[in-house]
């Protein structure tokens, strides 16, 4: 078995690097709860690069408009065709925000329109149990963004599997802290990331 590397997608438009602390935090969480072999640092992979195919899960976030280039779209399509999973998180936590509108438009153009993911999907029991669906973020509760608690995630399914997981919940803000900070938390709010990684790596 090869070592899992958490990859962040770098795209030409927008601010792909808006959540630099999320990858180490998720890596920490993976090591903290699972025996998955994981590299201690994440990787940054250009969306248009064939290196994208090296990573089973790729994380994409940002605040600004997302406009894929033709090369990015082509490479992403191949990546998804070949079984990769893309996790997109709206760093604006705002369904009327421009990231949401442009990112969903690009995903639709690239593969298909993201649909509501039922909260009893196996993603929510892939490792930890989330019987109510995706965990709520503090950013949803404090009035930021669209001031809504999003009950569901969205997904593009392929052959019964999640191909693109889309979140309007702003996990990028929720998980964007140094992993050492976890020792001051009574509840680890990054557990859901384990489910995403385990789901991406297993069948």
């Amino acid at each position: 078995m090869t070592t899992f590397t958490f990859a962040t997608a770098q795209y030409d438009s927008g601010d792909w690097d808006s959540a630099p602390l999320v990858p180490p935090n998720i890596i920490d969480t993976i090591a903290r709860y699972t025996e998955i072999e994981v590299t201690p640092t994440g990787a940054i992979v250009p969306l248009a690069s064939p290196d994208l195919l090296r990573y089973p899960l790729v994380y994409l976030t940002g605040h600004l408009p997302v406009r894929f280039s033709d090369a990015e779209r082509r490479q992403l399509r191949e990546y998804l065709d070949r079984g990769g999973m893309l996790f997109v998180d709206d760093h604006n936590h705002d369904v009327d925000g421009v990231f949401h509108r442009t990112a969903t438009e690009e995903i639709t153009r690239t593969i298909a329109e993201p649909k509501l993911l039922p909260n009893n999907h196996s993603l929510y029991s892939a490792f930890f149990k989330f019987p109510d669906g995706p965990p709520t973020t503090s950013h949803e509760l404090n009035g930021w963004g669209d001031n809504l608690v999003h009950k569901n995630l969205f997904a593009v399914m392929r052959e019964g599997r999640i191909s693109v997981l889309y979140s309007s919940k702003d996990y990028s803000s929720e998980w964007g802290y140094h992993p050492d900070t976890k020792r001051f938390q009574s509840v680890d709010n990054t557990k859901f990331a384990v489910n995403i990684v385990v789901y991406a790596l297993t069948a």
Binding site: D17, P20, A31, Y33, T34, P40, T41
Partner: peptide, 15 residues
Amino acid sequence: APVVIVDINKVRLAG
């Protein structure tokens, strides 16, 4: 971006 290197051995199965 700051480079954070996670000490895998230190946190392994600590949760």
